[in-house]
Design a protein around this nucleic acid. Structure first.
Length: 550
DNA sequence: GCCGTCACG
DNA sequence: ACGTACGTGACGGCA
């Protein structure tokens, strides 16, 4: 690896750091350390979080303003699936850059690329980033996205680097025990399945499973996929009413998923010395402004059921520390209340009502006191549906009723929440004229198909138009809370580290003696991240592991 | 490399 | 008649 530098357009250099077969690398780094740590010198680069983390490994801080062309390109169009330097160069400069894979050739690491080959490649990177910076940051300005970049996304870069570097401690020994437990469980279920089926087959093959279910046993398929008959949860749950096999398949799938994706995968990734897992928090992936997490994804760790608890118990705090979890209560519905200005919804949140019970009372025309759990379940699904850009079909699918019946619920909802109805119509109308939608803090998502003549495609964009301002504003809010919280932790010289973000939840690792002060600091940062027309509510918990913090 | 499936918010 | 809930990432199977 190394650092590519660019002093002026067209003139760039490559400084090898830890590059194989190059001597004087420490000398190279020592020359660079001063300017890198000089906070009056801005730093330009594509994916600066990577460089920051790499240089931290060389005991070098990167100070000063960060002009990250990857993050800039993302804000300009979050719909794009990748914002690589290659693609961004082509899009904004028609500059066809030599791809990284080509420079790498058959070698495993860039550090093995001979310096006389690595230099022109890396220098091109640096020069391109420098050229892109001029264009992209002018464009951010003209698109009204500069404020969002400089006050939110830029500070976030270092915070995400901190979180990735901190990592999260896992009890690898306990994961080993859980793996054995799951192994035994799976063996048992597997034999049972073969017994019922009368033959051995690959349970993980949807194709072979479909053959057994729908041909051998003659069960009636209820749903199709592109490739054949579906064997998904909904289908198997339906089939379970007629035959004992589908339920066993479901049990098998659940345990298999937990074992392969979490229990067996996590210890492989954990640092052998420290036992900590270091995810990547991706800042330029989602269309709505959320973060994503990968390698491993720590935003989809199981939480439901006994096994969810067992798995979250392995995410533990270091010696003399506790895990703190702080999550926003109903944040998206509160944002909907604020943005729609719907009187009933705002009123419910001001009085801290149980929002789903409240909605149920409205939908079924009864008093809150007589709302049944079934009515509440329906209302909860409707509330989710509203945020997703509700459709009769979608609601009918998730409630297991006819689209006609679902349509009645939707009509009833809009009759009671007229503000939400008007807001949605206005949002779609504005999206049609503008060609994009925005969040409360001005994040944009272009909707190129909002006027498409194909109604399916157009309606999909209409759902994006409804959902993105809500989901995206929630993302803005959490990011702002992260910046405030991490700033306060730093200012007070706390040892507490923010270690995870799961969309509406922040997780901290906190020494015992800081606990009370950190609890109030975090709550303050999160509940006051934005001032809305409804209060923001944060639930907090703490304990020796992530399960107990909930 | 895509598909189906399923873990999370 | 068509095909639809929003946003992700990882796994195994299969071509």
């Amino acid at each position: 690896m190394g650092i590519a530098l660019c002093r002026e357009k067209g003139k760039a250099f490559y400084v090898p750091v830890r590059h194989n077969n190059v001597r004087n690398v420490d000398e190279a780094l020592s020359i660079l350390k001063a300017p890198l740590e000089d906070s009056s010198i801005p730093k330009i680069g594509h994916n600066l979080k990577f460089d920051i983390l790499m240089l931290r490994g060389e005991d070098t801080a990167v100070k000063g303003d960060l002009y990250d062309t990857m993050v800039a390109a993302y804000l300009l169009n979050p719909n794009k699936s990748n914002h690589s330097l290659e693609d961004t160069g082509i899009e904004y400069l028609s500059h066809r850059k030599r791809p990284f894979s080509e420079a790498l050739g058959k070698r495993d690491s860039f550090a093995d690329v001979p310096p006389d080959e690595a230099t022109p490649y890396a220098a091109e990177d640096a020069a391109l980033a420098m050229e892109l910076k001029e264009i992209l940051f002018k464009k951010l300005d003209s698109e009204g996205l500069s404020e969002l970049y400089f006050s939110m996304e830029m500070p976030l870069i270092r915070i995400l680097a901190d979180m990735e570097q901190a990592g999260v401690l896992v009890d690898t020994e306990r994961l080993g025990e859980l793996s054995k437990e799951l192994e035994r469980e799976l063996d048992l279920i597997e034999s049972g399945i073969y017994g019922i089926s009368g033959e051995n087959f690959n349970i993980n093959s949807p194709k072979q499973l479909a053959q057994i279910l729908f041909e051998k046993l003659g069960l009636k398929p209820t749903k199709k996929t592109k490739t054949g008959f579906s064997t998904s949860v909904e289908v198997l749950e339906e089939l379970a009413k007629q035959h004992e096999l589908p339920q066993q398949i479901l049990n098998y799938r659940t345990f298999y998923k937990l074992k392969t994706t979490y229990v067996d995968a996590l210890p492989r990734i954990a640092n052998k010395q420290t036992g900590r897992i270091h995810t990547s928090f991706n800042q330029t992936v989602t269309a709505t402004g959320r973060l994503s997490s990968s390698d491993p994804n720590l935003q989809n760790i199981p939480v439901r059921g006994d096994w969810g608890r067992k798995i979250r118990e392995v995410f533990i705090a270091d010696k003399d520390c506790v895990i703190i979890s702080a999550d926003y209560s109903q944040v998206e519905l509160r944002i909907l209340a604020h943005m729609s200005r719907d009187k009933g919804l705002i009123d419910a949140f001001i009085h801290d009502a149980d929002i789903h019970t409240n909605t149920a009372a409205q939908l079924f025309g009864v008093a809150n006191e007589v709302v049944t759990s079934d009515m509440r379940r329906v209302a909860k699904t409707v509330n989710f549906g509203v945020i997703y850009g509700i459709s009769a079909f979608g609601l009918s699918e998730s409630l297991g009723i006819s689209p006609k019946e679902a349509g009645v619920f939707i009509e009833q909802y809009f009759a009671k929440y007229g503000g939400v109805k008007d807001y949605m119509e206005e949002t779609i109308k504005k999206a049609r004229t503008d060609g994009y939608v925005t969040t409360l803090l001005g994040r944009k998502r272009p909707l190129p198909d909002i006027n498409n003549s194909n109604s399916n495609i157009r309606q999909q964009s209409e759902r994006f138009a409804i959902n993105t301002p809500i989901q995206g504003t929630a993302a803005d809010l959490v990011k702002k809370a992260m910046i405030t919280a991490s700033g306060s932790l730093k200012q007070n010289n706390f040892k507490t580290r923010m270690i995870l973000q799961i969309h509406d939840e922040l997780v901290f690792e906190c020494p015992h003696d800081e606990l009370n002060r950190v609890l109030s600091l975090v709550k303050e940062a999160m509940e006051n991240a934005l001032t809305l027309s409804v209060p923001l509510k944060v639930d907090m918990g703490w304990g020796e592991n992530w399960a107990k913090a909930h």
